[in-house]
Amino acid sequence: MTAAHHLPTAAGSGASATERFKTDKSGNAGDTPAERVDLLAREVLEAVHATIRRQKVTYDEYNALKAWLIEVGEAGEWPLFLDVWVEHVVEEVATEHRQGNKGTIEGPYYAPDAPDQGHRGVVPMRENEPGTPLTWTGRVMSVDGEALPGATVELWQADADGLYSQFAPGIPEWNLRATFTADADGRFEIRTIRPAPYQIPTDGPCGKLIAAAGWHAWRPAHLHVKVSAPGHERLTAQLYFPGDQHNDDDIASAVKPELMLDPRSHGDGETVSYDFLLDRA
């Protein structure tokens, strides 16, 4: 995996994810009616109470949980914990009405306003960035097949060490992050590198949970995208590669068959084709 001097700490990554969430997304919770808060809080607590009764949870286990929850908060790992183990169900419920492309979780490492590379360009990366060159061509359309000129495709991905720019030290701000704007026919071409599988941070409390439960921490290789166009619902997805050993046991439970790419060898790299159909808003 990563050389030790480049490894970010879970606390550092968690703090970055927490601050990003506070900046971009935390302002909407106050609009939830009290009746809805009461219903959700009661059902969550009832599920916890039922588990305690069914499993005869001891005080030692309860205190271990309390200590762990405190540590998750102090380490800033709530975004990591929720995005890895909870978000996939929220996404499933929130998008079950859609007729267009399937989506999946956003995860904790999105950053808005990545540089726009037009409809055809290269994702910003360091000189000699490790990875197999990958060219992705695609088209953005409405569910009725109408091309969506000017649609945006935001892409972000981890580097070969599994690290994301803006969430790990020593990486240029927009490394492996870009926005592409579809042409008059809704087409785009993205040149990047094939991502690598990686482990989520394991030196913090989420890592302690993984070790205590005997789980693994691996995510399969994936490209993150957000696709949007006026008058249409934004699609958030991750695109995966066949043959990855963790496609079937992703720690984040985010892989779907509809999100699998079909890479073809081409020269010294690979090519893929993948289109998007967006639902009308």
Rank of each mutant, 00 (worst) to 15 (best):
L209E: 13
K25P: 02
W78T: 11
I105P: 00
R36E: 11
P169W: 04
A29C: 05
G204M: 10
E77K: 03
L277E: 12
G131M: 12
P220M: 06
N175M: 11
P220H: 07
T132R: 11
D144N: 14
R54P: 01
V72K: 03
D249L: 06
E129I: 00
A50C: 00
A158I: 02
A178F: 05
I210F: 07
L163M: 09
E258M: 02
N28R: 13
N101W: 02
A147K: 13
D275L: 08
R264K: 15
K208S: 13
T135N: 07
K226Y: 06
P257I: 09
L82C: 14
G243W: 10
A10W: 03
E154S: 10
V57N: 03
A47C: 02
T137V: 06
S265M: 12
R126I: 07
V272R: 04
D24C: 07
H5Y: 11
L80V: 04
E61L: 02
D250L: 04
P257D: 14
E91H: 04
A47P: 01
I200Y: 00
G138N: 10
D279Y: 13
G30T: 04
P205H: 03
D159H: 09
D38L: 12
R191P: 00
P263W: 01
V48Q: 09
A237T: 15
L148D: 08
G76N: 03
P257R: 06
T135L: 11
T181N: 01
S142F: 01
E258I: 02
G170H: 07
K208M: 10
A211S: 10
P108H: 05
D250R: 02
A178S: 04
S228Q: 14
S26H: 14
F180K: 09
R139I: 01
I251H: 00
R36H: 12
L261T: 01
T181M: 02
D60C: 05
T58K: 00
E173I: 06
R98L: 15
D60N: 14
E46T: 11
L277D: 08
R42D: 15
I105L: 03
Y109Q: 03
S26L: 14
D203I: 10
A160R: 13
L80E: 08
Q55C: 13
L223Q: 09
E270P: 01
W218N: 08
V123N: 01
A184T: 11
S142C: 02
A237R: 04
I251T: 09
N128H: 15
Q55D: 15
R219H: 10
R53H: 12
I193W: 00
V225K: 04
P257C: 08
L277M: 11
E35K: 07
E19R: 15
R187A: 05
E43T: 08
V86I: 15
V227C: 10
A50E: 09
D203C: 01
R126H: 07
